[in-house]
Amino acid sequence: MEKQSLPAKNGPEEPVIIIRDLYKSFGDLHVLKGVDLTVFKGENVAVLGKSGSGKSVLIRILVGLLKPDKGEVTVLGHQVNNLPENELNALRLRVGFSFQSSALYDSMSIRQNLEFPLKMNIKNISKQEIDKSVKEVLEAVGLEDKIDQMPADLSGGQRKRIGIARTLILKPEIMLYDEPTSGLDPITSSEINKLINLVQEQYNTSSIIITHDLTCARDTGDRIAMFEDGRFNKTGKFEEVFNDTDEQANSFYNYNFIQ
């Protein structure tokens, strides 16, 4: 399901994520070395790069899980670096984060996993409202029949879907996907890619998709950002990024699609 064009936009392009000159190191390991990126409303940006290159660090900084050493990060008009805890939490409610490991609460059933963010964040929410929201997100990810199972009973792909459903239940404006197709077979990966596009359409989200899977980037990204040596060295549509003489881009392409 290759994407052909950017989603239709109403009016001028509105940036929802602005990253400027971002640096992050862990001891002597310099992971981000002056990253710049802007994500516009309704847009899916696929960040491609090698495993361990620091792509996940970037989206962890966006939700305040990590602090940058230097640089500015603006999400939905808020400077993440300087936000007090209550404002950061208010912002986090508007940003969904799908973890590479799914990070489902393994002591809770699927229903409890989905109810938990609602119960903890919305005071006096009724049982009917909770049930309605749970049903809605389970329908969106196509796993209504798994509601009373435990996370350990699900397959890897199903866990990823439930992880995405858990973030959708708070109706986020931005979705951050950390390696959504890693460890999955090609058919399940394709289903996850379709789900990412479905979320963009149904929930009108803007997304950053961190991946090293070129198929995922091609199928889900309105724009591709190639991450290399701590910064983005190339951004553009899939055809633009991979249809030139750039050695790194081509080696990535060849590895994914030829080997």
Binding site: A90, Q100, S101, A103, Y105, D106, P117, M120
Partner: peptide
């Protein structure tokens, strides 16, 4: 176990 499987991070990003 919650820490190493990112469940604690998942709570944090859900504003919990």
């Amino acid at each position: 176990s919650m820490k190493v499987t990112e469940q604690i991070d998942a709570m944090e990003v859900s504003a919990i």
